[in-house]
Design a protein around this nucleic acid. Structure first.
Lengths: 350, 350
DNA sequence: ATCAAAATTGGAAGCGCTTCCACAAATTAA
DNA sequence: TTAATTTGTGGAAGCGCTTCCAATTTTGAT
């Protein structure tokens, strides 16, 4: 394996200075057409490829962005959610000439914050995309802003959205539509399987849901909330609890698809027919919602778009380098959609 | 934002030479305890952190490994599979002080090979982990070996395993056990939903399956094979086809869980009861297999372990730098396990 | 005590690139 | 035509680190 050609080799071959080659390669404005062509030809002839390390060291940027996910010790919760976001982020990255470092952290462990900060401190990446629950971690956000690190939040809660660039759907509205849908189906007694406390945007889904019921004149006492943690398993547990109550709900709304799948599982086990005995709704429209039987009525979040949008925003921020101050108005709302499938019946049960 | 301390600052603070600091930081053997302590203290005092770019440029290594996945334009096939492998890889990376770059490529597009090679050419990473179908791409493997790039294969077919380091299960044996299990259940008429052609290790599952039937004296004519592509959708389609045939199979074995879920979906739609009318088996033991109803009998692959093992092997290779020549005996077989759930009945139907 | 060998340490040369600065060439204005 | 600009280009100084090599100190054997 002979040594790779360097920028100096190209310069020599093209008969120009190293600086000129660099300029051509970075499409700086001041280069004549003639020289540009000669350089490009030399690059092609030699099969030259920039050494990113060197470029990064010299320019102070790594051309890498990091995507931060939560993952606790054993579960791989929401992995479809993650994959979709990651995929979108990757797309945007390749398009923009950036690399993507995906990083999972256990939000329960206390080191997570310093880990994230180390990524930017060590110049491992030029910027960060944070997914929940990190996107709601005010302390982390503050630390990031303090060191002028570019970052954008995905599905953050309203507080965090006020602080930094973010992308996500209008979770409250989505919850509202879910509530409406169920009310329209004739339901009057509800269960809601929510996400964990620190996932602010998921909490909004519940707010919106309740609002819809309220709007329809349903008393709040008719809805029981159980707190899950987005896993299939927690969906089973919560559903079991909710369905065992004296006044059994006829509709179960869940803060994500995995928990809805769990609820469905419970229903099967108990022998309830979905949707004739019980309606169930999910959230996210991950493949899970179609894999189960019956397929789930759910809210479609354009997760790939969210991922790519986040990276686009981030890279824009990195390039213009005009700090985080103008963040407030950089809240990107992407459209969601209620997807009606057969897990919710047309008429209310009995 | 004041400038970050450099190695020179540390050297000055500790009253030693820059080279000495470097030595301490890289735990080279020749440093006296006294100096080591002084340096470490200075590091702590200043809050010094190495600049990876610089280290990389100077040392010629990026301390980054890349994980290559397949993902075609719209589907996110097998995302649980990917997530699990990625998670395992990440674990190993953080443990070994490496970073992970995950990269998805469309194997259908022809640029994929050059993209991968660019990763190593541009020194974006020190090594690669290839997942199927890239792990069976002989051309890619050859190109990688040619440039002495360290890499390891995941779930590669036998041909590829002969060429390079690899980790995976004994797919043939797993297929065999699945076959045995179904035969033991009394089945005599089978359908098999296979993976795409270029996924060699998945093909082995079918080989083993057939072998088991053969072993049990079942005629090969009793099994019909449909070719899927690992997606839920393709599982539906294949199952539909297989179940429509004159001699309807009483058992459907699928090369992965997603397709098994699809088969299950078809069965539901047609009105077949699983497992009393039809037994179904999956492969991988991803969460999907427990999310569906009834939960799937499947083969558990320790995907996380596979991911971390692959990275460990890779890093070992990177460190020892003793080329790919001794690859042959570096085939790591990890144990799999048949997980029996309720999608396969105890007795044969009717 | 003496000298060779081993263990530490410092000095300095890069790694391959970007970018600031100065200078030459090509334009334009006067 | 000459002076004042506007380009385009080359030279050189780093970016922050590793690592080779030589110098120094320590160790251990004689």
């Amino acid at each position: 394996m002979d040594k790779k050609p360097t920028i100096d080799d190209v310069a020599r071959a093209a008969g120009v200075a190293r600086a000129t080659v660099s300029r051509v390669l970075n499409s700086s404005p001041n280069t004549s057409e003639r020289v540009r062509e000669r350089v490009l030809q030399a690059v092609k002839d030699l099969g030259y490829q920039v050494n990113l390390q060197a470029r990064q060291l010299a320019s102070g940027s790594s051309r890498l962005v990091a995507l931060i996910f939560a993952a606790d010790a054993d579960a791989e919760p929401n992995s479809y959610y993650h994959s979709a976001v990651e995929l979108g982020a990757m797309r945007a990255c390749s398009e923009l000439g950036y690399g993507l470092i995906a990083h999972t952290l256990d939000p329960a462990k206390d080191v997570h914050r310093s880990r994230v900060l180390a990524m930017v401190d060590e110049r491992r990446c030029d910027g960060l995309v944070l997914t929940p629950p990190f996107s709601d971690d005010a302390g982390l956000i503050r630390a990031l802003k303090q060191r002028d690190a570019p970052f954008v939040l995905i599905s953050a809660g309203p507080d965090a959205r006020r602080l930094a660039h973010s992308v996500g759907i209008d979770d409250r509205q989505a919850g509202f539509e879910l509530g409406e849908h169920l009310v329209r189906g004739g339901h009057r007694c509800f269960g809601f399987i929510s996400g964990p406390q620190d996932h602010r945007s998921a909490a909004l889904r519940l707010d919106g849901f309740l609002e819809a019921l309220n709007h329809a004149g349903v008393d709040e006492s008719c809805v029981t909330v159980a707190k899950g943690n987005f896993t299939f398993k927690s969906g089973i547990d919560c559903a079991e609890k909710l369905l065992a109550s004296a006044e059994r709900p006829t509709a179960l709304a869940c803060a994500n698809d995995d928990m809805a799948a769990g609820a469905l599982f419970s229903a099967h086990r108990i022998g309830l027919n979905v949707p004739s005995d019980l309606s169930i709704t999910g959230f996210d429209d991950t493949p899970v919602s179609q894999i189960v039987w019956p397929p789930l009525t759910t809210i479609h979040q354009p997760l790939r778009v969210i991922g790519s949008k986040a990276v686009e925003l981030l890279v824009g921020q990195i390039m213009h380098e005009n700090g985080a101050s103008d963040a407030a108005d950089h809240q990107h709302l992407v459209p969601f959609q209620l997807i009606q499938r057969s897990s919710t019946g047309q008429g209310a049960p009995n």
